[in-house]
Design a binder for these strands. Structure first.
Length: 835
RNA sequence: GCGGACGUGGCGGAACGGUAGACGCUACCGACUUAAAAUCGGUUUCCCGAUCGGGAGUGCGGGUUCAAGUCCCGCCGUCCGCACCA
């Protein structure tokens, strides 16, 4: 080895050593304590990006650290390989989705291996292969048999560009989350999973997840959207049944001035058949835009149906029934009663349509007569409410529910915002739903022995739509029950199903079933799950649901799949724009003084804000050339430096060069051996402080602090004279650097020790006695302002410390002979003299 | 609109209520070199004065405390999530 550490030669050498030694193979039968470290598996889009590098580096540091601590670590990698980009590529580039996907996997696998991650590649899986999705089909049938899967004719979000159905969660501001196209409404027969059965458990389970970020728990809580209230019926005045409503404010029941039903409500549909004005109104409501801005400013539209209902607490009180565009069919009962005085939306509606506004809540009973000039949403005291008058909002709510339940006209209920999970996708590149449709028998599950239902790969994409619909030999089968001609389900499963159980399959992968329960449970739950916050709701909620569903049907004992969750920040970069507004990539621009210019034509370039790396803004940095140039360790080190892991990291060339410099500094310490004897107490203390600090930082996933601690140790070692302590400190430094810069560490270790691998070294422990200095620096304040510092022996008494401070030259000036009013002494820290 | 997070040097960021700015980046000065790169040593919150010294300082305004970046109250700003949810 030369004077410089050479990653080009070194990286692959050690990767091969780890590989041949099966160092990172996870042994399910090991007697050691287990630790399952998992990063969200990637979609094989083509090449890895910086976000992947950051995510997998963090997980890798933790995995290697846990391994050094004596854990048997499971740290696997796989591919979330089904999905729409493969089909888009098929249509654009005339390649088969399977070929495209598998090629990308090969490329990205090589790129990940180049970074030297401590992964158990023997457990690698890809969701697009039958030996994965076949087991998924079996699990789907398990849930089907348990009654957790159902089919429903429903209005769905149809993405006209991707030609597929989207889940509510995949619609953002009324647009498809991938295509960005305005979503339309269509009616289709769809498969659903009963996630709403688990709404309460999923909500309550959040409380047990104390190793999750509060932010994510809150987002899930809001998504589940629990609200308590009263559900009850208004009898129709024409005697033809009733209208069910739900309210969270039953205390305002005497403030009702109308009922509003959704345009999708059964009553509306009945009326529409007879009355053109109703049909016209419904049509108008469906046209409205669904973007945030449009909803914000959308006018409240209503139509009086002419129908009247009777107030449940007063047979003489009639209320008109309106249709209104703001009433959602799929929340509550699709109908509500309007209380304009105490609801902003009802107020706006009533003002427009001249409906009565009646105060039923006031700050005090004396204010019952005050006019209502704007919606008063808050709690108060019931007024103008007959037997409720004088009760607080809370008490009035309880009283109404009590009366409704005892009189039998309503009951206290709970509503959730969460909807059932529609999993059907009119897409080719996904897991085939293992169902056969028979005219006589209906939807029949594919018999277990016929699994997997293999996705046929002899398909073409020259016409839009799902090629499975056109695949005659695959589609046309006989009914497993009655042997009559039947058709396969041609919808495939939402890819979120694929990612809802992959972490279980990683833990245990028998050939003949999805997983072995006992083996899976030796690893699960995942000790630390790391990924982007963009999955805070969808993926994490679905995986939690899937795990609970498996628990309910007796396939797993745990309820929660991920014990610890960490959401890392994005990798960002400055953006550049040419004069015409077009985006420029960082390698098309050059810095000149304080300005940026175009590399080729010399035109001035505007440097814009720092944003997430994205193809559209062209501010991406491909990790591959960076790794080739600086080596895996410098890239890894930079990914961990500077920014706290939960925050965004700005990519900079200065940063990566600083990291490369650090790698060489560490290498020099190991390479240029300086023999020495004797103890260096100061350096020994520094070492033990570093051991304590680095371990604590990695445990808390505060990699930037671990990095800073190691810098301090390197600085101290470089300054120290040769000694036995120094040699020992270098040895420990190498072990502590190993999780972050493993190739460098191995090279340095082999130079120092001649044999063995640093990955097999146990994590050092610190001596608590060495964390404490003999001499401490004590701050001396006068009236809270720092005026001097003293060096004092540790443990000096309060009296001695005070005397020392008062006699210091700098302090005497302030005292001018006077007695201080008060002196606060914090031993070993400070003395504050109050004059 | 509702909910949440965050505001510290030129930049990323450190700071159990107890010496604000660790560590890194940038910039500047110096050494080595014919020169540059690399490397090494030093300086780098701002203002006044000399490097000893003094004053100000953690978005803004108050408060609690011997002591506040940290705790409390009220603003301002930025970012994120949800959104006609009855």
């Amino acid at each position: 080895m030369t004077d410089r550490f050479d990653p080009a030669a070194s990286d692959s050498r050690w990767q091969e050593r780890w590989d041949s030694g099966a160092c990172f193979r996870a042994d399910s039968t090991s007697p050691k304590p287990k630790s399952y470290v998992l990063e969200m598996f990637p979609y094989p889009s083509g090449r890895i990006h910086m976000g992947h590098v950051r995510n997998y580096t963090m997980g890798d540091v933790l995995a290697r650290y846990r391994r050094a601590q004596g854990f048997e670590v499971l740290h696997p990698m796989g591919w979330d390989a089904f999905g729409m980009p493969a089909e888009n590529a098929a249509m654009e580039k005339k390649v088969h989705p399977g070929a495209w996907t598998r090629e990308n996997i090969a490329t990205m696998r090589a790129q990940l291996k180049r970074l030297g991650f401590a992964l158990d590649w023997s457990r690698e899986l890809a969701t697009c292969e039958p030996d994965y999705y076949g087991h998924e089909q079996a699990l789907f049938l398990d849930l089907f048999e348990a009654g957790l899967v159902f089919r429903k004719e429903s209005e769905v979000n149809w993405d006209p560009v991707d030609m597929t159905v989207l889940a509510n969660e995949q619609v953002i501001d009324g647009k498809g989350w991938r295509s960005g196209a305005r979503v339309e409404r269509r009616k289709l027969s769809q498969w659903f999973l009963k996630i709403t059965d688990f709404a309460e458990e999923l909500l309550e389970g959040l409380q047990t997840l104390d190793q999750w970020p509060d932010k994510v728990r809150l987002m899930q809580e809001n998504w589940i959207g629990k609200s308590r209230g009263l559900q009850f019926a208004f009898q129709r005045a024409d005697g033809d049944g009733a209208v069910e409503v739900f309210t969270t404010r039953p205390d305002t029941i005497f403030g009702a001035s109308f009922l509003a039903i959704s345009p999708g409500h059964p009553i509306a549909e009945t009326f529409a058949a007879q009355r053109p004005d109703v049909a016209e109104f419904i049509k108008r409501c469906q046209q409205g835009g669904t973007t945030a801005a449009e909803i914000e400013t959308a006018e409240k539209l209503g139509l009086d149906t002419g129908l009247e209902v009777v107030h449940p607490l007063d047979p003489d009180w009639r209320l008109p029934v309106w249709m209104a565009n703001f009433v959602l069919m799929d929340y509550g009962t699709g109908a509500l009663f309007g209380v304009p005085a105490h609801d902003a939306r009802d107020f706006e509606f009533s003002t427009k349509y001249k409906l009565p506004i009646r105060r039923v809540v006031a700050a005090s009973a004396n204010d019952a007569g005050l006019a209502v000039t704007e919606a008063e949403i808050g709690a108060g005291v019931a007024v103008n409410s007959r037997f409720l008058d004088g009760l607080s909002t809370e008490a009035a709510t309880a009283e109404i529910i009590r009366r409704a339940e005892s009189a039998g006209w309503g009951k206290g209920t709970t509503q959730y915002r969460l909807r059932d999970w529609g999993v059907s996708r009119q897409r080719y590149w996904g897991t085939p739903i293992p169902i056969i449709h028979c005219d006589g028998c209906g939807a029949v599950p594919v018999p277990r022995q016929q699994l997997p239902v293999v996705l046929p790969e002899d398909v073409s994409f020259d016409v839009p739509g799902n090629p499975l619909d056109r695949h005659e030999t695959w589609r046309n089968v006989v009914c497993p029950k009655c042997s009559a001609p039947a058709r396969r389900e041609t919808d495939t499963l939402d890819t979120f199903v694929d990612s809802s159980w992959y972490f279980i399959r990683f833990a245990s992968q028998p050939h003949d079933r999805p997983f072995d329960r006992a083996e899976a449970e030796t690893w699960l739950p995942v000790a630390q799950y790391i990924g982007g916050v963009e999955h805070a709701i969808l993926h994490l909620l679905y995986a939690r649901f899937w795990t609970r569903a498996l628990q309910r049907i007796g396939r797993l004992s745990m309820a929660e799949p991920f014990g610890g969750l960490f959401t890392q920040g994005m990798v960002t970069h400055e953006t550049y724009q040419a004069g015409d507004g077009s985006w420029l990539s960082p390698d098309e621009v050059r810095r000149e003084g304080d300005d940026w210019i175009h590399l080729y034509n010399g035109q001035p370039v505007t440097a814009g804000r720092v944003e997430k790396m994205s193809k559209s803004k062209k501010n991406t940095i491909d990790p591959q050339p960076i790794v080739d140039r600086y080596g895996a360790d410098a890239v890894r080190w930079f990914m961990l430096s500077d920014s706290p892991p939960e925050r965004d990291l700005e990519w900079s060339i200065g940063g990566i060069e600083g990291a490369a410099r650090f790698v060489q500094r560490v290498w020099k310490l190991a390479h240029r051996r300086q023999e020495g004897a004797g103890e260096d107490k100061e350096l020994l203390r520094r070492l033990h402080k570093t051991i304590a600090a680095v371990g604590q930082a990695i445990d808390g996933l505060q990699f930037n602090k671990a990095v800073a601690g190691l810098y301090e140790l390197v600085n101290a070692i470089e300054k120290a004279s040769p000694s036995a302590t120094r040699a020992d400190a270098i040895r420990h430094l190498i072990i502590m650097v190993a999780p972050m810069a493993p190739h460098l560490a191995e090279e340095a270790w082999s130079t120092l020790e001649g044999s063995g691998l640093v990955v097999d070294q146990p994590w050092p422990s610190h001596d608590p006695a060495l964390l404490i200095d003999d001499q401490v620096t004590v701050a001396v304040q006068v009236n809270g302002k720092l005026r001097d510092t003293l060096s004092a022996p540790r443990g000096l008494s309060r009296e001695d410390l005070q005397a020392m401070a008062l006699s210091a030259d700098k302090i005497a000036r302030f005292l001018e002979g006077a007695e201080p009013r008060k002196v606060i002494v914090v031993p070993d820290r400070l003395v504050n003299i109050v004059l």
